[in-house]
Design a protein around this nucleic acid. Structure first.
Lengths: 118, 118
DNA sequence: CAGAATCCTATATGATACTG
DNA sequence: CAGTATCATATAGGATTCTG
């Protein structure tokens, strides 16, 4: 075990796992511009099932990345928003997007070359 | 589809998927300090099966992130190394590690609070 | 040594229907 | 509206064996 990243429970791995989770990142991006309700998220994040959305929101909430505010009204209204920690994570996601946009052409070209060569 | 990140095939998603992949990141980290042979990787990356290691290496190679050099000797010798694109990606991984180390305490505290509150 | 082939299981995810 | 419960499945991943 030379560097910490090899342990399953190291900090990097835990963050990596969350970043690698499709729905988590999408939710964070969605909430970057302000709070949203459950149904708004469900509608705007295409293809997500209620089950996965709830599971994702719970995970993000547990990690302190988003807040969940229940308004005691009928019908129910629940707002989700990024915490300051979540906003900090969003900064990381933005970095990822920048890298992706800057290098996706290289990756795509490499794939074409690889696929034609094999 | 408001932002590109919602598409399955957008640049960010593709990079995210690779970053989120356990073994890919570990291989990149392993190769950050220089080239390594297949068996070295297999030994030092704990718990990886030949199947997953090969699959991971092929994926990284296809994306132009690592190079694969076969030495025509007996017994076979194959070296893997980061390409310049791969080194660039490693920069991103380092950024992730820094964020993780800086904020893991907050995340952990949030988890404890959440678990005790529920 | 480097990896391919095979078999098998666990987990993640999806679809759907229901409820306070 | 904001979920929960249930069922079904796909597929990622692991263990193992074999070979150029």
């Amino acid at each position: 075990m030379e560097t910490s990243v090899y342990a399953k429970d190291c900090p990097s791995r835990q963050i990596l796992d969350r970043i690698g989770d499709t729905w988590s990142v999408l939710v964070v991006v969605m909430l970057a511009d302000g709070a949203h309700r459950y149904t708004e998220l469900a509608k705007r994040i295409e293809g997500v099932s209620p089950k996965m959305l709830t599971q994702t929101l719970r995970g993000l909430e547990r990690d302190g990345l988003i807040s969940r505010t229940v308004h005691p009204v009928v019908p129910p209204r629940v707002d989700y928003a990024l915490t300051s920690l979540g906003q900090s994570l969003y900064g990381l996601v933005e970095g990822l997007e920048k890298w992706a946009e800057a290098h996706i052409d290289d990756v795509q070209a490499a794939r074409v070359a690889y696929d034609s060569g094999v």
